[in-house]
Nucleic acid binder design. Structure first.
Lengths: 347, 347
DNA sequence: CTGTTAGCGCGTTCAG
DNA sequence: CTGAACGCGCTAACAG
């Protein structure tokens, strides 16, 4: 009822005055770290209620010299992969009572650096960078960042920065597993579809060369590079480029570096009138929601994005609290759905 | 060279000491709001460089009594709709040199309120809530929020909170336009697909009833409710439920309340061996990336998510700077792609 | 043009 | 158990 229509938010001083105590006492009941006589505690609590008092975290952090905000930088929001990783991060961050400062670099190295700098100024306790563009950023830059604040990279295979932590997937092993699975189904003519501008494509291609080469099946022409691999247009470009490749090379299976390409491959086969998986088997990589939305549902390798995010938070927080840097590697697991099946021989 | 390996970040005091000036002078060159003799300015600048000094925004804001952080609350990240709106928000926020505190309510009203409270404690300058769950939250709650901080709702049709701002799409008009388009193509037997737990479905259904009723074509059975409409499983559930409905009712066109349902409808028709758009036309709503990824590409109504986000930021900032609340309504425009075509009569 | 000082909101000594 | 005073990093007001 005695509702203060005062615009300004209440502070410890206001509460102290109303409760007839000192600001120190207010602080004590708010934080509950020192004993306070029950009767005065009650008075303070009442005052807090009445004033709708909420402690100012900024002021507290300034005083305590320690932040409870962590920053995250992501290259784009247009690949669900990132959205799902962020979802994992956000959940873990909230559980720990931290807050999340969100920045999107829009696939631009310059903006990526700007984001990091902005985060510094905000006095974050640590930073998580998803799929950083380290190929286009001075190595010194992140080396300097690490001197200032704990840093965790998610899915960065390009270069190691001493002092940073890493949470990755073992995409080399995952790619091998995918290929072995296809081979187990009887496939030999396996097309490999990759993109540009990400180290992960290269890692996967190496696995492909090795597995196929060991069996004497490797053929350079079976590697198709469809260019930019992380945008919406990736699907269409894959669709277009693969129609020709499939007709020329007559593969019985196609392994794609991500699900966007996987869907593009699926569309291409359907445009060609081929049955999937009757005539040709298709595998994606990532297991983003999209892979479950198409018909037939895409068989893929799960990059467990949620876990990527949760692990990154855990590693970061451990580091913030004085622990060491870590390098966690998760295993990709195969999600067997509807686009793969036994090889029926040539078609 | 003289690289201070000191863990602590440099402060104005450090810079002042090194440059042999007072802290006030440092502040002046940093903010450039008062004139400083070029020679001393140079000394200060040099010291800043040498110390890698970055102003502490938290401290500045505490002093200035005004925040440059805005908070955003989103119900989920698993519908690309939200990801794209956030993308718009993030871009606009950065342009204005503000930062974004990100919170995900995971479709839970309780968590939605917790997010808002956490934002208060962080002393945000204002808050944007996307598709709030006002149906399950005390009206008082948001009424109180507005007393403390500027608030903008994106896509909230449920209830008006005095003192809040709104950025919406005119989904009523958009739905009418969609129907008129279908009718112009010769369709009369138009199935309407909706979900639960969002006011937007009801708005669209009203438009459907009105447009169809005016022509004497309305039939209650042509309204199909597929339940939860914003999750990944929405597509599958629509797929399942629509197969029966399409066989029973023999529609020549299907209007869906969002693209997830649109894709489900497309899958259903294809499972039935029907040609889209030859046998039946399908329209989605939203124009999320997914609508461009399926084959054939989905005709849909564009909710211009980017603009939703950018407008929300603009409205919020205007309010923060002392302006009035606003209510902006955007128009949905039709995106004519490959799932709609002229009605060939019954099939 | 430059230096000194007060105070933003808070938690924590240190005295009582 | 409680209160007074200090300082976190910064900017604005006021002197010089």
């Amino acid at each position: 009822m005695a509702d203060e229509t005062n615009k300004k938010n209440a502070t410890v001083v206001d509460v102290a005055r109303l409760a007839q105590v000192s600001v120190a006492t207010v602080s004590r009941v708010v934080n509950g770290n020192y004993s306070v006589r029950p009767s005065t505690k009650a008075r303070v609590t009442a005052a807090i209620q009445q004033l709708h008092y909420v402690p100012n975290v900024q002021a507290r952090e300034l005083n305590l010299q320690h932040s409870t905000t962590i920053g995250v930088v992501v290259p784009s929001l247009y690949n669900m992969f990132f959205a799902e990783v962020i979802d994992g991060i956000e959940g873990a961050v909230r559980e720990q009572q931290y807050s999340l400062l969100f920045n999107c670099a829009k696939n631009d190295p310059q903006q990526e650096m700007d984001c990091i700098r902005a985060l510094f100024a905000r006095n974050v306790a640590g930073i998580i960078v998803i799929s950083p563009n380290t190929a286009h950023i001075h190595a010194d830059f992140y080396a300097d960042v690490v001197k200032r604040t704990p840093l965790v990279f998610i899915n960065n295979g390009w270069q190691q920065i001493p002092g940073a932590s890493y949470v990755d997937n073992d995409e080399r092993q995952g790619s091998r597993a995918a290929l072995e699975y296809l081979i187990g189904l009887g496939h030999e003519r396996i097309l490999f579809v990759r993109g540009v501008n990400s180290d992960s494509y290269t890692v996967k291609e190496e696995a492909y060369r090795q597995v196929m080469g060991a069996r004497g099946w490797f053929d350079e022409r079976f590697i198709v590079n469809i260019g930019e691999g992380n945008s919406v247009s990736t699907v269409d470009r894959t669709h277009d480029m693969l129609q020709a490749a499939v007709q020329d090379l007559q593969p019985t299976a196609i392994l794609c570096c991500n699900d966007l390409m996987g869907v593009g491959a699926l569309n291409a086969c359907q445009s060609l009138g081929l049955d999937v998986p009757g005539d040709v088997s298709i595998m994606g990589y990532d297991n983003i929601a999209l892979s479950r939305l198409v018909v037939p549902k895409l068989t893929t390798m799960d990059q467990n994005m949620q876990e990527l995010g949760r692990n990154a938070v855990q590693v970061l927080l451990a580091r913030i609290k004085g622990g060491k840097t870590q390098h966690i590697t998760l295993q990709n697991t195969l999600v067997d759905r509807e686009t793969t099946g036994p090889c029926k021989g040539s078609f």
